[in-house]
Nucleic acid binder design. Structure first.
Lengths: 250, 250
DNA sequence: AAGTGGTCTAGACCACAAT
DNA sequence: TTGTGGTCTAGACCACTTA
């Protein structure tokens, strides 16, 4: 009577309208996809205001909360913009979001089917160069670990990492001879958020030697900084050998 | 009595517990952040099951739906994994998600403060090479547009794009002399989803000439394919000059 | 069989911004 | 002032999975 888990039949019955909820997908997903379709088809034009949540709830024969869930999803994706009182508009020039997973390097390699290999190059407890130290916002002791990850015995990526020992003192005793710092940190030092920069650069001497490429050859560089609350946990520079591609979904 | 919009005072009162909802943030956000803190602090350990939604709702003095909203957000971020009946576990080796905006190239340049420039190189209506045509999954007519975007009169990115004219016939008459295909498509040809690959490559002859760099120099390449439903709208290859960095948030 | 998260409802109050 | 989305509640049924 009042709508079950899926709510589909009840909605349609209660609304006495044509059944648009025929799929097994949840109602909010169906509504979201229908909204996407209307935007793509031009039924709802760029910059125009679309019907209110209440109106859509009536149209689809569901409750306002279900419509809100669908619209929130579209807003998160940047397809629509919502304002209290102002209603929901189709984004004029939508700033779409791209998303991608950040897997463990070992799993990234395993996913290609290749055998995984790992070799630590060095660990250091020297003071960090200013360029690195600046990013740690005045953290205390730092340590550095450099290592190469192999795919099918060929160098895949060079990992050059600084770790905040004040925040993760156990790292000083980890060694990273068998387990990479990448993996160790993911398991032992959770972070709350981070940022990542990607660029194409000329391989320097170390990168060239580590990856078995010529100096000056293009390398795909990922610089990742992760934070626990407001403190930097680690800064990593990952230099990928030629052929590497990072994927994002839009 | 039954909880207003923010629900904060009511929750605390009703629960008769200490006030943990002191901020102005919505309750679900507060709960989410507290959960993040507990995970980071090790209160909730990797791989362990955390309290059920109902239990957390009791603890925080709110309704189950509010806890669910917070947990859904963490699950979307990959920090926890949820199973019906199995409960919610802290991800063992969480596959974190990185997200980034996909701005218009013009806006990307404007954001740096540099003056924006644009020059169309060519438009073609020749049959696409097999490598490109394959990605269009047997679409009919295609057209190609190549152009350079400038930042402060220096080449910033080379845009080499194929457009599905069957889906977007108006593109054939657009010209793209003043407005870039990038911009035109965003405004006129909405897409439902897409994918993007990023890599570091050696500049070929065209890239070198267009960007004013040496052949073989590293270029940051973005290959973006967008779809309307299941049909490909456009495939673009964006080759960025040295110094370009793409940013993602984690 | 039982307990979990997934979803939905109907109602409510609020903050915000357009009028 | 008014109407919109943002949030919250209390309750419910269901699907899934584990025990």
């Amino acid at each position: 009577m009042t709508g079950g888990a899926t709510g589909r039949p009840t909605m349609a019955e209660a609304a006495g309208r044509r059944l648009i909820f025929e799929s097994d997908a949840p109602a909010w997903r169906t509504i979201r996809d229908e909204a996407r379709r209307r935007i793509a088809a031009g039924d709802w034009r760029r910059g125009a205001t679309i019907p209110t949540e209440a109106a859509l709830a009536r149209e689809f024969g569901c409750s306002r909360g279900t419509v809100a869930r669908a619209m929130r999803d579209l807003a998160d994706a940047g397809l629509v913009e919502r304002r209290k009182r102002g209603g929901t508009r189709v984004s004029d020039a939508p700033v779409r979001q791209a998303r991608g997973a950040i897997p463990l390097i070992r799993e990234e390699i395993a996913a290609t089917g290749a055998a995984y290999g790992y070799a630590r190059l060095l660990t250091q407890h020297l003071p960090a160069p200013d360029a690195v130290a600046a990013r740690f916002r005045g953290a205390g002791r730092l340590m550095r670990v450099a290592a190469v990850h192999f795919a099918a015995e060929r160098p895949f990526v060079l990992e050059d990492r600084w770790i905040n020992l004040t925040l993760v003192p156990a790292a000083a005793r980890a060694g990273f001879k068998e387990e990479s710092a990448n993996e160790w940190l993911v398991r032992r030092a959770p972070f709350t958020h981070g940022e990542q920069w990607m660029s194409a650069e000329r391989a320097d001497v170390v990168e060239a030697r580590s990856l078995g490429i010529r100096e000056g050859a293009p390398v795909f560089v990922v610089e990742r900084t992760t934070f626990a609350a407001e403190e930097v946990v680690t800064v990593a520079r990952l230099s990928y050998a030629a052929g590497y591609r990072a994927r994002l979904e839009i």
